[in-house]
């Protein structure tokens, strides 16, 4: 009923693997093509963050159900350096990698619920939920 599927992120190709799984699961539970793309893109951003900054981590997907809604929950966990100042990485245009700086605030906009916890030296945990409209 509620399987939890995970992808480990070590190599660059794992980013592609993670977003394929995310899209597959989003499709399975009934998301439209646009939301599938949103979810897959969000996964891609999170997976790339792990690959770039933490080198080691995992992204898991599971379905969640409430009385009136169903959706998909993704959890991205890494054991990397952690984020010192969360509010600054949540600002548009903030980047340390030379990307577009759309990463985390972008993910927040792509998903419905977004939650981030980070401890310097221990790692980062991000949870994001998309509900079916």
């Amino acid at each position: 009923m509620n399987p939890r599927s995970c992808v480990n992120i070590h190599k660059e190709w794992d980013i592609v693997g993670a977003r394929q799984l995310g899209r597959e699961m989003a499709k399975e539970i009934g998301f439209g093509t646009v939301d599938q793309a949103r979810i897959a893109t969000a996964v891609s951003e999170l997976a790339r963050n792990i690959y770039l900054y933490a080198e080691n981590g995992q992204i898991c997907f599971e379905y969640i159900y409430t009385n009136s809604q169903k959706g998909i929950l993704m959890t991205a966990v890494d054991t990397g350096p952690g984020i010192k100042d969360i509010s600054s990485v949540m600002q548009d245009g903030y980047t340390t990698s030379g990307g577009l700086g759309a990463g985390l605030p972008g993910v927040k906009r792509l998903m419905d619920d977004f939650d981030i916890e980070s401890t310097v030296g221990e790692g980062t945990k991000i949870k994001a939920i998309k509900w079916i409209r």
């Binding site: 646009v34 793309a37 949103r38 893109t41 972008g106 906009r109 792509l110």
Partner: peptide, 14 residues
């Protein structure tokens, strides 16, 4: 560029 892709880019702020 596909509609779904365009919308995702807009959400990302790109």
């Amino acid at each position: 560029i596909q509609p779904a892709v365009a919308m995702t880019l807009i959400d990302l702020g790109i």
